[in-house]
Amino acid sequence: MKKFDITKHSLVPKHAKLSDKEKKQLLEKYNITLNELPKILANDPAIKDLGLKNGDVVKIERISKTAGEYEYYRGVVNA
């Protein structure tokens, strides 16, 4: 039995935490509040090791057939 790191799986895009400054810039850019972002659960397997809490924002680098590569954002909520 080996331990597989699921962030290496081909279906899982890269998840990273957004700093407070970047978070503010993002919300200003789209003129939205934190609640209007799509959500991700704090205990989601892909961000388990990032140690995130309620109110953080995750940047997801998605690979897409139509746009090549783009960024998507999700707000962290407690499960």
Partner: peptide, 28 residues
Amino acid sequence: VLQIEGVDAEKTITNDIIEIAQVLGVEA
């Protein structure tokens, strides 16, 4: 299956989407 020795876990997939959400997360 992902933990079995000899399996290429990076490419192994299932068609059960709920199972993927549990093991690999919403984005997957």
